[in-house]
């Protein structure tokens, strides 16, 4: 399994292909429905440095606050990515992201955005909230916690060998398109 350090260069990202297993280490940020809408309403300068050349994780964690004011992720699997389809390609372009982690895959607009900007879609195992929380040893800081609430806030996190599968690459490849195409053929067969 390949290891990938974050932040990462466009050159490194372009080497990845659909089906590759990758373990991520370094800094990333979470963001989901409310965050994507907010990121496109304006240019959010304060979060920009935390997004450039790293990845955004579609995740609404369960979070514990420690006595010293720091936070720990208690459960942190991916949420369904397709809801961010209207925004994702533009968010990648505006904030210089090199990738997106989520589940379920994304659509044509995102796939085109990945190719244009040099980024990948990384599939984490949906529901594997403990295995993935274990790979998140540190919560560095949080944006918009009061406004968005715990699941929707943007959490800056440190990850250590965070396991993902490349399911959409920067060359137009999409595992989701392949599986959907094949399953459609089989459905038509069953419904003849």
């Amino acid at each position: 399994m390949a290891e990938l350090k974050l932040p990462v260069s466009e050159e490194e990202i372009r080497k990845l292909k659909v089906g590759d297993f990758v373990e991520l280490s370094g800094r990333m940020i979470t963001g989901r429905d409310t965050a994507h809408h907010w990121l496109m309403q304006d240019v959010r300068e304060d979060v920009m440095p935390y997004m450039k050349d790293t990845v955004i994780y579609h995740c609404g964690p369960v979070v514990a606050k420690n006595d010293d004011g720091s936070y720990d992720f208690v459960a942190a699997g991916p949420t369904t990515s397709i809801r961010e389809e209207p925004y994702q390609a533009d968010v990648i372009g505006r904030y210089g992201l090199r990738g997106v982690i989520g589940k379920g895959g994304m659509g044509a607009k995102t796939l085109a955005g990945l190719a244009e900007h040099g980024a990948v879609y990384l599939h984490a195992i949906g529901g594997a909230a403990q295995v993935l929380a274990r790979a998140i040893p540190k919560v560095e800081r949080v944006f918009m916690l009061d406004e968005f609430g715990v699941p929707e806030a943007m959490w800056v996190i440190e990850v250590d060998r965070f396991p993902v599968v490349v399911s959409m690459d920067s060359h137009g490849g999409s595992l989701h398109d392949e599986v959907e195409g094949e399953s459609k053929r089989r459905l038509e067969e069953l419904l003849k």
């Binding site: 995740c59 964690p61 459960a75 195992i125 594997a128």
Partner: peptide, 28 residues
Amino acid sequence: GLAEKALGTILENVELARSISAPICQDT
């Protein structure tokens, strides 16, 4: 394969959640 690996991670996660009494999935 990818399918077997995904199910392996799922089962590992189920075991871990039970052992530390923490949510299996963050979307409870």
